[in-house]
Design a protein around this nucleic acid. Structure first.
Lengths: 121, 121
DNA sequence: CGTTGACCTGGAGTGCACTCCAGGTGCCAA
DNA sequence: TTGGCACCTGGAGTGCACTCCAGGTCAACG
């Protein structure tokens, strides 16, 4: 079990230093361990959690909902497995329909590109 | 060639009345025709253009870039076909990589769901 | 004739998710 | 011992894309 500096963690996870502090501040991250001089030292489990947050964020989950998920995870224990799973499943369905919509719009854009292709003066 | 009220246009395009006015104000839409009492009457070509804007927006193109595209379309004539096409092609590539990233993150989320599934207490 | 309802304007306000800042600490290398 | 770097804090500021508001016009309906 190793520990990571804020810089390493930012590098690893793709979040900025400020975002890491911000996430901790709003409670999206559990209190991060500090070394003797007060600097953050992220654990493997912090990194794992951050990776999951990254997945949720990139796929468009709003912070408020990630917060709900974080709270279930932090305070709930096993009792909230079903609830957490439901939340992720709902999000998965949203991802699916987002991608479907993007594909549909992409088709229209490609038609437009093809039209230009055929009509270059 | 028919004309559409703001309400109909909002309905049709999925943009709100306010957004329609906003887009006209910032120049994303050419000046929209008005009836005798000053109310907007959108044409078929306005609707066509709005549908294209919708595709770009939904797929994540920033307003500033749509504005570039609008300016090329408005002022450029045929001379800008190549440029417009390049802009759309670049956007199409971005859509592609966005979808790829979403799919990748979705996989991780589904693994997490599966893990919960297997570990319901 | 009055009152809806859809629309008009310019400009202010909102929500989200960061991002930046000033002023400070701690530690290491030259 | 002095410079530089990575980090710390609370709080203010930013950018984007709308969204709302007050106060007004207009046309049609009962």
């Amino acid at each position: 079990m190793s520990l990571y500096s804020p810089g390493e963690t930012a590098e690893e996870t793709g979040f900025s230093l400020d975002t890491l502090r911000y996430y901790e501040k709003i409670g999206l991250l559990p209190r991060v361990h500090r070394n003797a001089s007060g600097q953050r030292r992220f654990s493997d489990s912090d990194l794992y959690w951050l990776a999951l947050l990254r997945c949720l964020r990139v796929t468009g989950m709003p912070i408020a909902e990630m917060l709900t998920f974080a709270e279930l995870t932090r305070d709930g224990g096993d009792d909230t497995f079903v609830e957490r799973m439901a939340l992720l499943k709902a999000h998965d369905r949203r991802i699916e329909s987002q991608i479907a919509e993007m594909r549909e719009k992409q088709r229209a854009i490609r038609e437009k590109i093809a039209w230009y292709e055929d009509n270059i003066p």
